[in-house]
Amino acid sequence: MITLSAYVVVAMVLFGIGVIGVLVSRNVIILFMSVELMLNAANLTLIAFSRALNVLDGHVFVFLVLTIAAAEAAVGLAMVITLFRNRETVNIDRYNILKW
């Protein structure tokens, strides 16, 4: 029997990996993947709680989140393509016209 806390711990570890990925990675594509990982960690938390509490709201919410993640990915990848056309790099440190 896998307990609720096990799911929550896994989700938090995934979330943490995502946060670290966003903070240390220099590649825009990997930044996207890290953000997606964070969103999916939240999905896992929602599903786990939903099962444990025996309510359906969490399951439905996950579908909404998936849709939103897809929309965000579409916009984000379009932006990366535009940037790559103009700059020919995906290294975030090279996007330095405006100082961070």
């Binding site: 709680f49 939903s50 444990a52 969490g58 984000g76």
Partner: peptide, 30 residues
């Protein structure tokens, strides 16, 4: 190039913030 950069920075920080918000909602739901 400035606009490109602004877009990508806004996107990454915005998506990052949304993920925090979503995780927060998940725990409040829990």
């Amino acid at each position: 190039l400035e606009s490109n950069e602004a877009g990508i920075k806004y996107f990454i920080m915005g998506a990052f913030a949304s993920a925090f918000l979503l995780m927060g909602i998940a725990f409040v739901f829990g």
